[in-house]
Amino acid sequence: MCDTERVKEKEIDRDDKNFPEKLKSELVRPIVKKLWYRGKWNSKLFEKCAAVVGARKMSRYGKQALGEIIPKLCGAGYTIVSGLMYGVDQEAHKLTLECGGCAIAVLGYGINARMEEEAARLAGKIVERGGLILSEYSDITSARIWTFPQRNRIVVGISDVIVVAEAGEKSGSLNTASWARRMNKPVYAIPGSVFSPTSEGTNWLVAQGLAKALTVTELNTLTHDSNAKTQQKNSLEQMEERERELITKLKVEGPMGVNEIARKSNLSAGEILGRLLQLEIKGWVVEERGMWKAV
């Protein structure tokens, strides 16, 4: 997927023929004059891009959601764009590399500025796997409070679709979303629990109509993957009595932890654990943050 076209220069001008067309759009304001980069420049990387952004603080839920979404996006040929910040950004990059996808990281500081160990290691891997590290700041320009929002406009600029994984109330990801609005790019937000502080921002985006909630259907249309639902599920009748009981219980009473299920049923905790895992493998139930629910 990631062919190499060697370009030795470490910078690329706006009038270079390889400069991404998308960034030349007049909607990208202020205009991007020049980009510094690491890795092998490859125009194909920019053909179909999805930005996956989110808060620095990531919950188990966010991690789990990314684990589902990113492989699908990669599988559908998207290059995953993010910001190399710890939290959702780094997780997105990592997952992309794990499932063999292409990654672009856009920095909010100079291309040669010192990075934290984890970020540096990840950056190295991205380059190694044919991805790119981009920045509009030269050399060792250090990060400022305004460089990150500016960076977001490039992330949005080169992407065709934006996915906000998790965002708190005042997350920078909301800034990304507003760039996307200005540039007319579709934004998807992963909805979360109303109680979860890490989902406040994403829920707000959905509530305000600024983003579409990223449901399974949406994800499938996004990745043109329509066979996902059909493969699942042999009929309820074929199941064992106890498994059926568990599913019915979860359907009627909503998501529950194992302790609660044990209290409300006649099964022992050990048996419930075992059954739930089998049901999860068969695709009947899912676990998130210790709560099990029927799907």
Partner: peptide, 20 residues
């Protein structure tokens, strides 16, 4: 887990619980 249940053979449910 199988020993606790007094079973000689390890069954699917034992494995499933252990995975948890």
């Amino acid at each position: 887990i199988a020993d606790l249940e007094g079973m000689e053979e390890i069954l699917v449910n034992h494995i499933a619980e252990a995975v948890q």
